[in-house]
């Protein structure tokens, strides 16, 4: 699946989806990200790897943290970065995505970072873009958010070292979550011992087990003994579409509180892709507590995105992690 991510030599060309990538490549991305991690502590917070390259951020959905970390990542690699925040309603009525793509191509850019509410939008761009341009998926509908998954893997490795013995629970709106899907693929490719998803039946998509997860409808059973907990954001719209009765009831059953956390492994870490809804999916005391690595995730986001951008444009070789 998604072999269009790789070029003829099997090198990463577009970064669209974790599914279909191999363990070696994922580890390589983590290693290269490691080498970028301390750039922001230096006096000159830049490396010249993408000097002369132009990166375009195309955000069809609102985003603060993903867009700014991509922008920062591009700038720290010395690329020129353009930001387009496109109101989706105006494009659906007017310019087609393919026309926008052609127009941007004419500006001689080297990379498009795209976030779009349609699953497969990044794949679509990669299928139709001029051959010299790389596409990075910054989130497509409910399909994939591969850089988020990689920064999550990076954070897990920082805290846990080895993936093999880990039991990981992903809790919340699995149905609508691209983060969940990409994390499930990444965790399985990196060979963790177990991936669980925890949610009410209304938020579990059909056949999710085939992606290599165990399904739990009960939070305490789902968290029992796990080493890593990945909480997902619950969108308010879910109450409108009759998937849940209320945010309050959701918090009662699936909110991560100190008490719920007790059943997990004593060293378990708590993650969240942000932005967090305090008192909806997670209690403030947990989000700000000693087990939380949420801010560490944000910090890692820049390094991971630098790694993915540099590899996709061939600025670092995939083996060279130093």
């Amino acid at each position: 699946m998604n072999s269009i991510q790789l070029n003829n030599q099997g090198r990463l060309k577009h970064f669209l989806d974790i599914e279909g990538l191999n363990r070696k490549l994922l580890i390589n991305i983590l290693d290269i990200a490691d080498s970028f991690l301390n750039i922001d502590t230096k006096a000159v917070k830049k490396v010249p790897l993408l000097r002369g390259k132009t990166v375009v951020n195309l955000f069809f959905e609102p985003s603060t943290r993903t867009r700014t970390t991509f922008e920062l990542a591009g700038k720290r690699l010395s690329a020129d970065v353009l930001n387009f925040n496109i109101n989706n309603s105006s494009t659906s009525k007017g310019e087609a995505l393919i026309d926008m793509l052609r127009n941007l191509e004419a500006m001689h850019c080297d990379m498009f970072v795209i976030r779009h509410n349609a699953g497969g939008a990044a794949t679509f761009m990669a299928q139709h873009v001029a051959p010299h341009i790389s596409i990075i998926n910054a989130g497509d509908g409910q399909h994939a958010h591969p850089t988020q998954a990689m920064l999550d893997m990076f954070t897990i490795r920082q805290n846990k070292g080895d993936f093999a013995p880990l039991s990981v629970a992903i809790v919340g709106d699995i149905l609508h979550s691209r983060v969940a899907r990409s994390n499930i693929h990444a965790l399985n490719i990196l060979g963790v011992s177990e991936v669980r998803v925890v949610a009410p039946k209304t938020l579990i998509p059909t056949g999710i087990e085939t992606l290599g997860v165990k399904v739990f409808n009960d939070l305490k059973k789902g968290l029992d003994g796990v080493d890593v907990i990945i909480m997902l954001r619950l969108q308010r719209e879910r109450m409108k579409s009759a998937l849940l009765p209320s945010a309050y009831e959701y918090f009662q059953s699936y909110g991560l509180t100190e008490s719920a956390l007790k059943v997990a492994h004593p060293d378990a870490i708590v993650m969240h892709p942000g932005p967090i809804n305090r008192g909806v999916e997670i209690d403030s005391s947990v989000a700000d507590g000693p087990r939380s690595v949420i801010l560490q995730q944000v910090n890692n986001g820049v390094a991971i995105r630098m790694a993915v951008m540099a590899i996709s444009l061939g600025a670092v070789s995939e083996q060279d992690s130093n």
């Binding site: 599914e19 699953g119 497969g120 497509d140 509908g141 409910q142 399909h143 994939a144 691209r178 899907r181 998509p205 059909t206 056949g207 999710i208 085939t210 992606l211």
Partner: peptide, 15 residues
């Protein structure tokens, strides 16, 4: 169609 394919591709499903 609601099934493994729609789940994997993140496409809104038609049961």
């Amino acid at each position: 169609h609601e099934g493994v394919v729609s789940t994997r591709l993140g496409l809104t499903a038609i049961p």
